[in-house]
């Protein structure tokens, strides 16, 4: 699988991720760094655990990169997502997008993180002092394979 779209158990290097997309044609590199938040809706998280369906997740990250290339043809994208146990402030995901001009890099970067939350098979489990839970459906939407809910999904 391409170095540009990876699921890894190792800490993510921001600098290495950025260096995957820097090139002479680019005048802008936008990075999005997703980190582990301590307080969510008033509740204190001790640590997170991320699990992925690695082979499919890497394919879907690459697919997001291809979608970005269709929308912003001059963009180059790298997305690295970490799995395993992560502590507060640890980096869970780094997205780097380079484009000739800055506006596109902001938009493409935002697009990438929103799509990750829709189509990439990665799950996080929040561990609290008094319990734990797998978190799902953060966008309050589901990503439907057919692009819309099937009858079975609604019932």
């Amino acid at each position: 699988m391409s170095r540009h779209y990876c699921i890894t158990e190792e800490p993510i290097s921001i600098e290495k991720t950025v260096s995957l997309v820097t090139r002479p044609e680019a005048g802008a590199v936008n990075t999005f760094i997703g980190t582990v938040r301590e307080i969510t809706q008033g509740k204190r998280t001790l640590y997170l655990e991320y699990q992925a369906y690695k082979s499919m997740a890497e394919k879907k990250l690459m697919e997001i990169g291809e979608e970005i290339s269709e929308k912003w043809p001059e963009a180059e994208t790298a997305i690295i997502h970490r799995t395993g146990r992560l502590e507060i402030e640890d980096i869970a995901v780094v997205i780097a997008v380079s484009t000739p001009h800055r506006a596109d890099s902001y938009e493409a970067s935002r697009y990438a993180i929103e799509r990750i939350k829709e189509i990439v098979p990665i799950w996080k489990k929040e561990h609290w002092e008094d319990g734990e839970e797998w978190i799902g459906n953060q966008k309050e939407t589901k990503a439907y394979a057919a692009g819309k809910p099937e009858e079975e999904d609604i019932s």
Partner: peptide, 10 residues
């Protein structure tokens, strides 16, 4: 076949 619960990456 893989069952994919609602995802929560990022």
């Amino acid at each position: 076949i893989a069952f994919i619960p609602p995802v929560s990456g990022g």
